[in-house]
């Protein structure tokens, strides 16, 4: 064996040992720090997608369509959230006009291309502001989201595991508050539920549409109970979106039971929710409400919907 071969072999051995030790160190650290496992919601999406190259392509494509949808809503002006540093510096956001957009998609705060006053690049910055889709976005408005509906359909067709596509698409469909919109939204969400059984976000969205658009509290309660049960199973492993949907589920479900006159269930749900979300003011109020205050005849389908939590 040549000297070079020996050196190569020893380097390879050293690398292998380093990798092994790094792996075991990482495991040890994980145990020591008691890091949580990956969120279940994320895993559900990623493990499905990662099983094949086609899956990865689908994931990338749906994520790309998602980004394009956001771009479209801002007429191709790229927005981003504030960084931690910017928040600490107290930088002001370029907020949107109150056009209900926040009910559809989470709003980013500032433009990616900086304003001239914040830009140190001189002529290169000026050129970018002239060539990119850029404008001052303080009090900005949004393009009509209904025009983006085909994109939601496309992204969920491409990747049926892409839950935000189902829930946001349904929110857009139900946006106009007419019965046809609600019917389409529920149909869309049902398709999403077929591909994502017992998904908390979809179940919660169905419950929300049933309550706010069709006032069908019994049906809503059934779906919200399913979401609640799924939340119990996956508790501690939920990603941010699923966790937020679970919190909403507790609120809507408790309200549902209140309006149905099932006060024991209202209190039980609210108290269970408070066990998980101790700072939730809505749940706290629902858990403390004496049944007498809102005593009413038992309501069924057709009764007035509860106010939004």
């Amino acid at each position: 064996m040549k000297r070079g071969d020996l050196r190569g072999a020893s380097i390879a051995c050293a690398c292998a040992l380093a990798l092994l030790s790094a792996g075991s160190t990482a495991d040890a650290l994980k145990e020591l720090l008691a890091l949580p496992d990956r969120p279940a919601g994320l895993d559900a999406h990623e493990t499905q997608a990662a099983t094949s190259l086609v899956g990865q392509v689908r994931t990338s494509l749906s994520a790309w369509l998602w980004l394009r949808t956001d771009l479209y809503l801002h007429n191709w002006v790229e927005m981003r959230p504030l960084s931690d540093g910017e928040r600490r510096q107290g930088r002001s956001v370029e907020g949107a006009a109150n056009d209900g957009h926040d009910q559809i998609m989470r709003e980013a705060n500032v433009t990616v291309v900086p304003a001239q006053a914040d830009d140190f690049r001189g002529i290169l910055g000026d050129l970018e502001r002239e060539t990119a889709a850029y404008k001052d976005m303080h009090g900005h408005s949004h393009n009509d989201p209904t025009a983006a509906l085909p994109l939601f359909r496309l992204m969920t067709w491409v990747d049926p595991k892409f839950v935000p596509g189902w829930t946001t698409g349904a929110a857009v469909l139900a946006r106009d508050r007419n019965p046809e919109g609600a019917r389409q939204a529920l149909k869309f969400l049902s398709s999403g539920l077929l591909a994502n059984a017992d998904n908390i976000e979809i179940l919660s969205s169905i419950g929300y549409v049933e309550i706010t658009r069709r006032n069908d509290l019994e049906t809503a309660a059934r779906y919200l109970e399913r979401a609640r049960a799924a939340g119990r199973v996956g508790r501690g492993k939920l990603d941010e979106d699923a966790d937020s949907a679970l919190q909403q589920t507790y609120r809507w479900l408790s309200l549902c039971y209140r309006n149905l006159g099932r006060f024991d269930q209202q209190l039980a749900v609210a108290q269970e929710g408070l066990g998980m979300y101790a700072d939730d003011a809505v749940l706290a109020r629902l858990a403390d409400e004496p049944p007498l205050i809102i005593a009413a005849p038992k309501q069924a389908k057709g009764s007035s919907p509860p106010s939004a939590p």
Binding site: F120, E128, T131, A132
Partner: peptide, 29 residues
């Protein structure tokens, strides 16, 4: 943007040295 203004010239220098191909793309507009 997040560093002290005295050191921004360094980032400005790097910006001017790296070719900015994205400037030629007005696809968004």
């Amino acid at each position: 943007q997040s560093c002290p203004s005295g050191t921004r010239w360094f980032y400005g220098l790097i910006e001017s040295l790296v070719p900015q191909f994205s400037l030629f793309d007005i696809g968004g507009r």
